[in-house]
Design a protein around this nucleic acid. Sequence first.
DNA 1: CAGTGGTCTAGACCACGCG
DNA 2: GCGTGGTCTAGACCACTGG
Lengths: 237, 237
Amino acid sequence: MPSSLPTYLALSDLIAGEFADCSPGTTLPGEHDLARRFGVNRLTARAAVDELERRWLIRRVRGSGAYTVRRIEYRIGAAYPVSFTEAMARLGVETTTTAEPPERRAAGTADSHVLGVPLGAPVLVLRRTRHVQGVPAVVGQSLLAGDLLPGLEDALAAGTSLHAVMKDTYGIEPALGWSQVRMMPPPPEEARRLALRGRPPLVRMGARIVDRNSGRYVEVVDQWLRPDYFDVIVEVQ
Amino acid sequence: MPSSLPTYLALSDLIAGEFADCSPGTTLPGEHDLARRFGVNRLTARAAVDELERRWLIRRVRGSGAYTVRRIEYRIGAAYPVSFTEAMARLGVETTTTAEPPERRAAGTADSHVLGVPLGAPVLVLRRTRHVQGVPAVVGQSLLAGDLLPGLEDALAAGTSLHAVMKDTYGIEPALGWSQVRMMPPPPEEARRLALRGRPPLVRMGARIVDRNSGRYVEVVDQWLRPDYFDVIVEVQ
DNA sequence: CAGTGGTCTAGACCACGCG
DNA sequence: GCGTGGTCTAGACCACTGG
């Protein structure tokens, strides 16, 4: 015989079943409410809801409530679009991006190595935050080959996709050169930008983007995605 | 000014710093102990340790204690070994595998489709659990082309690697044909086999293994890995 | 057996959102 | 201002591990 489930897990299964077929955005009963209804302590009810949050079935908003959600399938692989914005657009998901002004610098040894440019060549660093439904869901930075993107600061108008600008303004054809995905807790800075409590593991994606025309690396990406927002699916071959 | 950290998160950072450089297996002070030492309630101390567990920095054993751990880097991609056993051996990690007796059946439509065999062809289903340091860390099943592996039941002696048997007994050269990795909560059955509390998200890996000689699919894998044990790194191209 | 982590209770105060 | 989730306290009992 399996030992019987603890109250909070039994309760979480109960609630999960209740809301399994609800459309995303459905509000769960409050924790105080659940506790009263099932005759348990609030902490027990809360533990049940914790479990649902851990499974990425719901999301909690302080002062507001808990809501059912659906993770967005984000596919990465040779067969899929390189541009995040394009991938989201294909899924009908609206995202907004806020970028800090690009930082210019001369390539150090690390920059030079990953980007394949000479030491001291101009490189740009672009820090971005991507929002889904107004909530920050991705943060990251791009290291860019400065000589391929002269005057990028001006070309990058608000709200435009970097890859769109690459194509339209610079005639660059970005393609996925190499990519790596893993899960790990983010540094405090990234956790802060995503308004996380603590530093729960995130999806970390590194990528090198090639310009099909010149054959050179244009962009080296290092970004962090919230796994409760994105079901990142990586395909090899 | 950033709002000051809650007690439990400040405490978790403190403890994390304390044990950052310790070798894996170091025992943390008990929760009751931590609570006494820092003058907080046990639940607050516990919340701090929860955060460390969430970051995969420690592992807790009921009745025993909490221990620092190091995740095992498991790399998946065209450049890496197909065999899990081989990948672990290269890292010097000892794993043991327990397999249930293979189940024989005639290929249904789904089997036939993924394995590329005719309807009704013989297929084998092999359920395995892999242990790291005595703890179940991976569960999964393989769907195998029966005609390529006649008498597999006998050839699979205890503790031998499936891929080793493929090579040595059947002259098959297994290679990665296609692979997909994502994170999601497991079905209850898989959670039970891994002795998890609740159903926290796991790494799900699907793969099709090709025989280089015949060019045919030999094996279709569907397995679940504990992300606190494995730092699964997927590389594309 | 003593000590560990796992669960649960009954309170309380707070920050925040939304109307 | 009310209800939400987030944090914290002071207790308690339990299942389990390990000496």
